[in-house]
């Protein structure tokens, strides 16, 4: 291109370099994991010595395989998103559509602070609340899948709130007037028009929330994840999770084979996240 100033060229080069560095970093990490973990990917890694069918039908417990950790991770993602999604969308709708400017400003600030709370602090708070509830109200309550899921929901809900709010506020002003112009009430406008129109951008926030729920270790190690628990039988039981397994293996591995298993677990976690992202992306395309 002719007549480009030195500043333009510099900015362009800088932008390209940044994009290249980030893309390379992702490829290097993924490549490193594949390089080390791919050879460990086999049925033994997941089921150990338990027959596959019997393990899947929960007839026999899997010891030494990753099936319980995979099941725990999936249950954790499902539960935390189930808690965070309705609350996050409702709060986002409130901020975008009903809150007065002053309230919007204050609540917006609160949610931004919430998003910046370190996960270890959320984990500690969850643990403290569990102990308090255990001592004063529910003697049977211990750190468990439910507590972890609630803590993770608290951690990811700001992403859903903000993405819902921004998605609704970004809708063209004429789109907001279409249904009221036909006689729709505010609630009908929201339900039939605004939320469906904003849905594809709301899904973006949900994708971020899924990723965070899947990978967070600090919260779950304080609120219910354990090294050996088997497939969780209820939301009140302890559970295994892939991020915790990876962390635990990296910190405590006894031999090279155990470390390789950690790489395999990391690769499986990457696949799970990839699969969930692809699913969310498919929903995003469908709602468009």
């Amino acid at each position: 291109m002719k007549n480009r100033s030195a500043g333009d060229i510099l900015l362009n080069t800088y932008a390209w370099c940044c994009a290249l560095i980030l893309t390379s970093a992702v490829l290097i990490i993924a490549g490193y994991l594949v390089f080390h973990g791919f050879s460990t990917l086999n049925l033994d890694l997941i089921f150990a010595h338990t027959p596959v069918l019997e393990a899947l039908l929960l007839k026999k417990q899997v010891f030494g395989g990753l099936l319980p950790a995979i099941a725990g991770t999936l249950a954790l993602i499902f539960l935390s998103i189930s808690f965070a999604l309705p609350v996050g969308i409702a709060a986002g709708v409130f901020l975008a559509e009903f809150a007065l400017p002053g309230t919007r400003k204050i609540l917006g600030l609160m949610f931004d602070i919430m998003a910046s709370i370190p996960s270890i602090v959320v984990g500690l708070s969850g643990f403290a609340v569990t102990i308090f509830l255990h001592q004063h109200f529910f003697k049977q309550l211990y750190p468990c899948l439910l507590i972890s899921a609630l803590c993770l929901a608290f951690l990811v809900v700001p992403y859903i709130i903000r993405s819902t709010q921004i998605a609704l506020e970004s809708l063209p002003s004429q789109a907001r007037l279409t249904a009221p112009g036909l006689g729709a009430t505010r609630a009908q406008n929201l339900w039939y028009v605004l939320i469906p129109m904003a849905a594809k951008d709301i899904v973006g926030g949900v994708i971020l929330a899924i990723g965070r729920s899947a990978e967070d270790t600090a919260v779950i190690m304080l609120t219910g994840a354990v090294a050996t628990a088997g497939i969780p039988g209820s939301v009140f039981s302890g559970y295994e999770a892939l991020p915790f397994f990876i962390y635990y293996t990296a910190a405590e591995y006894a031999d090279a084979a155990e470390l390789m298993k950690g790489y395999g677990a990391a690769l499986i976690l990457l696949f799970i996240c990839g699969g969930l992202y692809a699913f969310a992306y498919w929903i995003k395309k469908k709602v468009r």
Partner: peptide
Amino acid sequence: RRKVGMVFQMPNPLPMSILKNMQFPLKLA
């Protein structure tokens, strides 16, 4: 607003089928 209809400068279809766009005001009424 059902008696005083409004058409905007830019066409503003609702994110649904042609039939549902037409059904929508009737449903509201």
